[in-house]
Design a protein around this nucleic acid. Structure first.
Length: 289
DNA sequence: AAAGTAACCTGCCCGC
DNA sequence: TGCGGGCAGGTTACTT
């Protein structure tokens, strides 16, 4: 579900909504989401703590607590973080029957009750999402293999070129590999390569100077615009922001999920191929191999 | 060491 | 109508 733009949108909304709130209670309906700690310990360590800081590392959401512990949430493919879905009258999570009718809320796996009587909820159809509770040193270890953030100041053309020398093979694989650059997934890798006019199978070692520069610019351009429009909800039950709203970037997608449709730049038919078992969308005319 | 594959799960859609 | 196969935004563990 979420890539950098979607997680960044959620982070900004979380900062608005839950900073300094206290976690009063935790309800878990699928303990499988807690990957490194039993529910009972998680509740013990988290209840009564205040939320001090929210951060994004790649696609990871970090919630810093007043007792120095950090909740790490990764939404994987179908996770949603939602706020405020609760039964105000009874001051509880909306009843199960009601939840199951709602396409997003029917998959609630874990809920935090906050001291403003709202719930922060993790919904996740496929149960791939993970929640970890970490000490600072554990967090550091957990994040050590996460690559540079493409929005950070350190992500400049020189550093980008250096990274490219560390890997060979299809450029799309490189863009999606979180240990080099963090935050780019299947949607934006296709969109970035279209913007840069580079074929997704183009080998890193065959990229020209100009292509590298174009790719660098395309990464920033596409991601910033995607954040501006609060991410992409490509399918019906896909990404939602903290308030359950869809993203606004779908209407700007040029190739992703446009197989068989005409390229908006040249009219050629958009193709889909498999790279590393993931769909890659591209224009065979605009994007050079 | 890099590359491929299965696995984690659930639901939907398509064709037969 | 039912069933099987393929598909889906991500990552990791295991095998070649």
């Amino acid at each position: 579900m979420p890539e950098l733009a979607e997680v960044e949108t959620i982070i900004r909304q979380l900062e608005k909504e839950i900073i300094n709130k206290k976690i009063e209670d935790v309800f878990c309906f699928a303990p499988v989401v807690l990957k490194n700690i039993p529910l009972s310990s998680f509740k013990r360590d988290v209840m009564g703590q205040r939320i001090k800081k929210i951060e994004r590392k790649g696609k990871n959401i970090l919630i810093y607590l007043s007792n120095e512990l950090v909740i790490l949430i990764h939404l994987k493919l179908t996770g949603h973080l939602l706020i405020g879905k609760y039964d105000a009258k009874n001051n509880q999570l909306i009843p199960r029957e009601e939840r199951l009718k709602d396409p997003i809320n029917r998959f609630i796996r874990l809920a935090f009750l906050l001291n403003d009587n709202r719930f922060l909820v993790l919904s996740d159809l496929r149960k791939f999402a993970k929640i970890l509770l970490l000490k600072p040193e554990e967090l550091e270890k957990e994040l050590q293999s996460i690559g540079i953030d493409p929005l950070s100041n350190d992500f400049n053309l020189t550093n980008f070129k250096n990274l490219l020398t560390k890997k060979r093979g299809p450029i799309k694989k490189f863009l999606m590999d979180q240990k080099y650059i963090s935050g780019i997934g299947n949607i934006y890798s296709s969109e970035i390569l279209f913007e840069a006019r580079i074929h997704p199978l183009k080998k890193i070692e065959k990229l020209t100077e100009e292509e590298i520069k174009n790719l660098y610019k395309a990464i920033k351009k596409v991601l910033l615009k995607a954040i501006k429009y609060q991410g992409t909800s490509a399918q019906d039950e896909s990404y939602r922001n903290l308030y359950g709203e869809k993203g606004g970037y779908e209407k700007f997608l040029k190739v992703y999920q446009r197989e068989g449709q005409k390229c908006l730049r040249c009219g050629q038919v958009i193709k889909r191929i498999k790279i590393d078992n993931r769909s890659a969308f591209f224009c065979p005319d605009c994007q050079k191999i």
